[in-house]
């Protein structure tokens, strides 16, 4: 297996406003511009794969990987349906999807590809792919976020992705679709008056973006549990995107980080960030949580602890 070639990583928000209503606020417009910058970067690169990890595609049966060669539908968001419909037709790298599944299974994960006409691709993946790869110049792959998965499983999933990229000799751009703080306003608002829901969310977002800007992705991965407790609405067990992104990109801090935009999206924190592998590192940390190579499943403490 050759060393995986990951050209750069993008962290971007899942909300549909940058796609459907960029003119509704200056902030949405700046996010749209940042997506546009990323689109050009991808087109100017030698990428032959866009690999998307989407926090708005939850799965239960392990980790699902989209493998329909040309998924096509007209999607409507559950909350923001009044902003309009999102017709899409994407080009998927089915060969890579199968290899990714194999890699995941070889590391002990439950995984399956999904290839069904009409499968509901999630809002976040649609927004990312329509803005980053509007003409389907580069084939893509999307992987779900298992709602029960925690750190070990998510890190192993990232390593599986890395295995597959290396084995297939792909030149990949890694895209993580996730908010920073994810608390939205619970009322309808004037988009022109959009702001981050609270000062605390804003302060945490800015601290995270400081790390991103310094290329400290592995440090963010190590901070995931703290981030989850501080600024994430508790929909799932953990804040996983940094775990997956860091594991996929090599678990280090050696990146040139660029925060292209940071804006409110109905109160949540939306940022477009680019991380490009570079020389050098910020810090020389020791972390006290185990690295993990293979997923062994739940440990069954109820059984082993029984008298």
């Amino acid at each position: 297996m050759s060393s995986p070639e990951i050209l750069f990583g993008i962290y971007c928000p899942p909300h549909p406003q940058p796609l459907l209503s960029p003119e509704a606020s200056e902030g949405y417009g700046r996010l749209r511009d940042a997506f546009e910058t990323c689109r050009k970067r991808i087109e100017d690169s030698e990428a032959d794969l866009i690999l998307v990890y989407s926090t708005t595609w939850p799965s239960i049966i392990g980790h699902q990987i989209q493998s329909h060669p040309e998924p096509e539908w007209v999607h409507v968001d559950d909350d923001f349906h009044y902003l309009g419909s999102m017709p899409y037709k994407f080009k998927m790298d089915t060969e890579f999807a199968e290899k990714f599944r194999e890699s995941a299974e070889s590391r002990g994960l439950q995984s399956r590809t999904v290839s069904y006409d009409g499968f509901p691709i999630d809002t976040g993946s649609i927004v990312a792919l329509k803005l980053l790869n509007p003409d389907n110049k580069i084939p893509a792959c999307i992987v779900s976020s298992n709602m029960y998965a925690n750190r070990a499983e998510t890190i192993v999933l990232g390593k599986s992705a890395r295995d597959a990229i290396g084995t297939q000799g792909r030149k990949a751009v890694v895209v993580v679709v996730s908010s920073l703080s994810n608390r939205m306003f619970t009322e309808h608002i004037d988009p022109a008056e959009d702001r981050i829901h609270s000062a605390k969310d804003d302060e945490w977002n800015k601290k995270i973006l400081e790390f991103f800007g310094e290329g400290r992705l592995e440090d963010l991965s190590q901070l995931s549990r703290e981030i989850h407790g501080q600024i994430r609405v508790q929909k799932v067990v953990a804040y996983k995107p940094a775990w997956w992104m860091s594991a996929t990109m090599g678990q280090h801090n050696n990146y040139t980080g660029e925060v292209l935009a940071y804006e409110a999206l109905h109160g949540s924190g939306g940022a477009v960030v680019v991380l490009t592998p570079s020389e050098g590192s910020v810090g020389d940390k020791e972390f006290d949580e185990d690295d993990v190579e293979h997923y062994h499943g739940d440990r069954g403490v109820l059984d082993t602890g029984a008298l």
Binding site: W57, P58, S59, I60, I61, D78, D79, H81, V114, Y116, D117, G118, F119, P120, D122, M184, F185, T186, E187, H188, H266
Partner: peptide
């Protein structure tokens, strides 16, 4: 699932295909 209030279907007809995102092997 909505986070901005409670929503109600507001058109008289809906005709399409529903595919379960978790169990697409079972429900289309």
């Amino acid at each position: 699932q909505t986070y901005i209030g409670t929503h109600f279907l507001g058109l008289p007809k809906f005709k399409s295909k529903s595919v379960d995102p978790v169990f697409p092997n079972l429900f289309r």
